[in-house]
């Protein structure tokens, strides 16, 4: 979406104004890190509109607000500390909010019902509903535990040229994230993954945007598109 240089100004402005949807906003944030022009455009746009924030009259804030902030401050240097949910990679620590995970719980019910209808003959061992940072349901992973998993995309993902979507899971913290495979044309797929221990309750599944052919490091390196924790199908 940033191919056309003249669009960068528009995208930056719409991002700064908050007019992009959550997924496009995340994409801008990710692209900004690689695209200095986009970064500069966002910075310039923020400066342009900042005088509007200066029109806000300062509210009187009590010390209790500061006390609440201070109570929640993690020590510096432990940025991915215990307060955060486990994540298969650390490229966006702390960006995922509890609300997104809460939204997921409700969605699990839907997903289990859905998978019951679709997979009547072969039951998945676990089902994970993957949400984006805003808590919107984006995909469902059904792991059958026999080196086969099905990924059902529930939304259109824009995959830039030279990129692909990679599916990850975290069987255990010791083992680290493992790739289940690639989704090349952003459509629902069945994957033949590596041999892994039986998927367990609350196992993490995640979709990231990687360079074509998959992550060069064998670990997730790109933007997290969606993630969620598995539930055992009953």
């Amino acid at each position: 979406m940033t191919d056309n240089r003249t669009d960068i100004g528009v995208i930056a402005d719409e991002y700064v104004l908050g007019l992009l949807d959550a997924a496009d906003g995340l994409r801008v944030e990710a692209n900004m890190e690689r695209d200095p022009d986009l970064k500069a455009a966002v910075a310039a746009s923020r400066e342009r509109f900042l005088p509007l924030d200066d029109t806000a009259e300062a509210a009187i804030v009590g010390d209790d607000l500061w006390s609440r902030i201070e109570a929640g401050l993690p020590a510096q240097g432990s940025r991915t500390g215990a307060a955060h949910k486990p994540t298969a990679n650390d490229n966006r620590p702390g960006g995922w909010r509890a609300t997104a995970l809460a939204a997921m719980v409700a969605a699990v019910i839907l997903a289990v019902a859905l998978s019951f209808n679709l997979m009547r003959t072969v039951e998945p061992l676990v089902v994970a509903v993957l949400v984006n940072e805003a808590g919107d349901v984006k995909a469902i992973v059904e792991d059958f535990g026999n080196e086969k998993a099905a990924v059902r995309l529930l939304t259109d993902f824009e995959v830039p040229e030279g990129k692909t979507i990679e599916v990850w899971t975290l069987p255990s913290a010791e083992r680290g994230p493992v790739s289940l495979g690639l989704i090349d044309d952003a459509r629902s797929v069945r994957l033949n993954g590596p041999s892994l221990p039986k998927p367990h309750d609350s196992q993490l599944y995640e979709l990231t945007l990687e360079q074509a052919g998959g992550s060069p490091t064998g670990r997730p390196t790109g933007l997290i598109l969606a993630k969620g924790f598995a539930k055992i199908a009953r």
Binding site: D53, D54, A56, E57, A58, A59, I60, V61, L65, W66
Partner: peptide, 9 residues
């Protein structure tokens, strides 16, 4: 913080 509260509000 005071101004930020108003901006958020």
């Amino acid at each position: 913080a005071g101004r930020l509260v108003t901006v958020a509000e």
